[in-house]
């Protein structure tokens, strides 16, 4: 049996004195699609960043294809076939649209196939073709988002980590993106998706991981995740919230900056 594409083994992580993850384990099998769910500040982005080597782990191990990559720089993990589309802006705003694509596709597609991959990218996202020589910084927020997705959707990778996949995209563009995801899925790419639109992501996911306060609250088949999510997220209502009911336990601050570790 082939080892999982990505395995986080009891990983903890922190931003300076602010701890964000507490012993989180996530496994992405080859060709699988894992949805990463949880409320705002539960640590979803941090899991994505740990997996791609952007944030160092303070405990636990990260394995990519069975190889221990704990503490390895991000570029080594990227070369091992793991692509990460970060949340927010993921493009170089001072470079042109085409330069952004070249930077990304050249290494993965190889110099010879570069022209072909560029054409494919423009074909799939015609909005980018019109602005190919414009500086990426002059694109609208949504178009920049599209560009950062175009960079990774054209050439299939072993694993694609997408953080806040459809953030800031118009509905029909979201459809396009999900169609493209379907294509790379069929090409054998495993997916780890952070997404706010839960129903949508669960419709393509094979399994789901629900995070709560930096720990795993649920890991298992996607079909049952929806209930868990509703359970984990719903009691978070504030006095003005729609649901009204308050949990009996004391509320813990949200945001990733809420627990100061004892050591510093």
């Amino acid at each position: 049996m082939t080892p999982p594409v990505l395995e986080l083994d009891a990983v903890s992580a922190a931003y300076g004195p602010y701890r964000a993850l507490f012993g989180v384990s996530v496994t992405v099998l080859e060709g699988a699609t894992v949805a990463l769910l949880g409320s705002n500040g539960a640590g979803k982005s941090t899991v994505a960043r740990v997996a791609s080597g952007l944030v160092p782990v303070t405990a636990g191990r990260v394995l990519a294809g069975g190889v221990d990559v704990t503490g390895k720089p991000a570029w080594r993990i990227a070369r091992a076939g793991i692509a990460h589309v970060p949340e927010g802006r993921g493009v170089f705003s001072t470079l042109s649209v085409e330069e952004n694509l070249v930077l990304s596709l050249r290494r993965r597609a190889g110099p010879r196939a570069l022209r072909h991959s560029l054409e494919q990218a423009y074909l799939r996202f015609p909005a980018l073709a019109e602005r190919r020589h414009a500086r990426a910084g002059t694109l609208s927020g949504g178009q920049q988002r599209l560009l950062s997705l175009a960079k990774v959707l054209v050439v299939p990778r072993k694993l694609l980590i997408a953080d806040e996949l459809s953030l800031g995209l118009a509905p029909h563009v979201v459809d396009d993106v999900y169609r493209a995801l379907g294509d790379v899925q069929r090409a054998g790419t495993a997916l780890l998706i952070v997404e706010q639109s839960i129903d949508r992501v669960l419709s393509i996911a094979t399994s789901a991981v629900v995070l709560d306060h930096g720990s795993v609250a649920y890991a298992g088949p996607a079909t049952e995740a929806a209930d868990v999510v509703a359970h984990v997220l719903a009691p978070r209502g504030r006095p003005q919230g729609a649901d009204g009911a308050m949990p009996a336990e004391p509320r813990v601050p949200r945001g990733r900056g809420w627990r100061r570790s004892q050591t510093t």
Binding site: Y18, G41, E87, G88, R238, Q240, P253, R254, G257
Partner: peptide
Amino acid sequence: LEIVGLSEVAEVPAAALGLGT
């Protein structure tokens, strides 16, 4: 702070908060 639901992070510097917060 209470209306928006930020009371619990009132003393945290913004650099330590996630994008949504």
